[in-house]
């Protein structure tokens, strides 16, 4: 995987997007995700009502890869049910682990497909999955 693929336009765009970077007024779940080896530190806030994710915020600071992945995730899960969010999360992680490779099956990840080849750069895999693992934990707290 070369740098152009890693720092693709889509990943750079999401890493600098501020849409989901504002704290929520009424979060119902909060969870912190850290990547102790490199200093990524994110705070995920969700407002869940009737099993549906109404609002998402991702605060804290991370590298371009973790921030882009978090931005893509926020966009995907906003408005989805908790179950749908879990399914997306499983799919994202399966894509990273190369367990699911068919483009047709990955369609629902939308911009998230940009991270498909991150496993070719093992040092950055943790960055790409940080926000998704933080989401899984948050949803488990909620349940």
């Amino acid at each position: 995987m070369d740098l152009k693929e890693l720092y693709s336009d889509i990943i750079l765009e999401y890493s600098q997007d501020k849409t989901y970077r504002k704290p929520l007024m009424r979060p119902t779940v909060r969870n912190r995700g850290v990547n102790p080896s490199c200093g990524d530190n994110i705070e995920l806030e969700l407002q869940i009502e009737d099993h549906r994710i109404k609002e998402v915020a991702i605060l804290g600071k991370g590298c371009a890869i973790s921030e882009a992945s978090a931005g893509v995730m926020a966009e995907l899960i906003q408005g989805k049910t908790v179950e749908e969010a879990r399914t997306l999360s499983d799919l994202f992680v399966s894509m990273i682990q190369k367990k699911v490779t068919e483009e047709q099956q990955l369609k629902s990840l939308e911009a998230g497909i940009a991270f498909q080849n991150i496993s070719n750069m093992p040092a950055r895999v943790k960055c790409a999955v940080l926000s998704w693992h933080t989401l899984e934990e948050a949803l488990n707290q909620e349940a």
Binding site: L3, A123, C127
Partner: peptide
């Protein structure tokens, strides 16, 4: 630029 991105480059 985050240090982790610097190191990757």
């Amino acid at each position: 630029v985050h240090p982790h991105d610097v190191v990757t480059i």
